[in-house]
Design a protein around this nucleic acid. Structure first.
Lengths: 166, 166
DNA sequence: GCTAGATATCTCGATGTCAAGACAGGTAAG
DNA sequence: CTTACCTGTCTTGACATCGAGATATCTAGC
């Protein structure tokens, strides 16, 4: 089977035969797949009246374990967004009653964002559905393939996740 | 080596031992890698006074081959954006002198967007630099690994690129 | 040739994100 | 203890994107 990237690389081979476009086979697929994934996730979250950005923040808090509390700084590093964006997200989640803002007793500059019970219920339901949907999307791969794929992707990701310059 | 996704999955295993979070090993990595890739690309394009969205449109036209001409409709399908976005992009590229809008002689509703000489020069230079940078990012993988990775990603992508419902 | 529906492009309002900077509180060196 | 720098959070203005709808043209069936 052929995908859009095969066609894209073939076109480049015609138009720029002087360049070695082999890296596109991996990296353009990563970008395009991520884009499609975003849409698939949006569809899952819509069933829970939730948006992707809400899910990203709420899951970060949920993963932290009781008392489901993280600073805005840790949240923005976990979700790869800027500080202004995170302030805005927390504002809206707070208005929706899904998180609360509490002063950090250790650091007077700091704030701790905590998941409310309502927030926890919402995110747990959405997460279970998301996992199911993602399992569907991986349906065409064997367990071995999935492991191989995960390992290869990890080796590309490690430099980014290690080096703080990102 | 461990990456951020390994830590993320470990956290879920503690918090939600009832769920099988194995799909995350692949799909969360795809999303996170795409995000890092975006940043890396932005850095490359900055050296050419170009933004990612400009590059996306200009390369689509460049790949089409002489006379470097596509309709807005084909451009938006190639770049996975909505029609309003594409109109806006073409407007700005036209103001910058990188593309021109011409009536489609076959279809009076239609428009053909054509790459100007200036646009072609700009995109060719940026593309060569991008490929070099992407080759660096793949440096940790052998040629075999890269082929394996590309094949596995293709099998995930084919359903999206085949089925028009995306 | 007419009608109904599909297609191509554009317009407009709302919104989420970024980048840069402001500001308060922490931290280390002298 | 004070100077200088770093850190954590929030504010602001600009901007790209989306989604829904408007308009014009094409196409198929009768």
């Amino acid at each position: 089977m052929e995908d859009e990237v095969d066609r894209l690389v073939a076109a480049w081979r015609t138009e720029r035969p002087d360049l070695d476009t082999e890296p596109l086979h991996v990296l353009s697929r990563v970008s395009r797949l991520a884009r499609h994934l975003d849409r698939a996730r949006r569809a899952v979250f819509a069933a829970h009246d939730m948006e992707s950005w809400e899910f990203d923040v709420l899951t970060a808090l949920r993963r932290a374990g009781p008392p489901y509390e993280l600073s805005p700084g840790r949240l923005l590093r976990a979700t790869l967004v800027t500080s202004g964006t995170m302030t805005n997200r927390i504002d809206r989640l707070q208005s929706a009653g899904l998180v609360s803002r509490n002063p950090d007793p250790q650091d007077k500059r700091g704030v701790l964002v905590r998941l409310t019970d309502a927030g926890r219920t919402r995110v747990d339901a959405a997460f279970a559905d998301l996992i199911d949907r993602e399992r569907d999307l991986l349906g065409s791969l064997t367990a071995d393939d999935r492991r191989t794929l995960a390992d290869l992707l990890r080796s590309l990701l490690v430099p980014f996740d290690t080096d703080p310059t990102g």
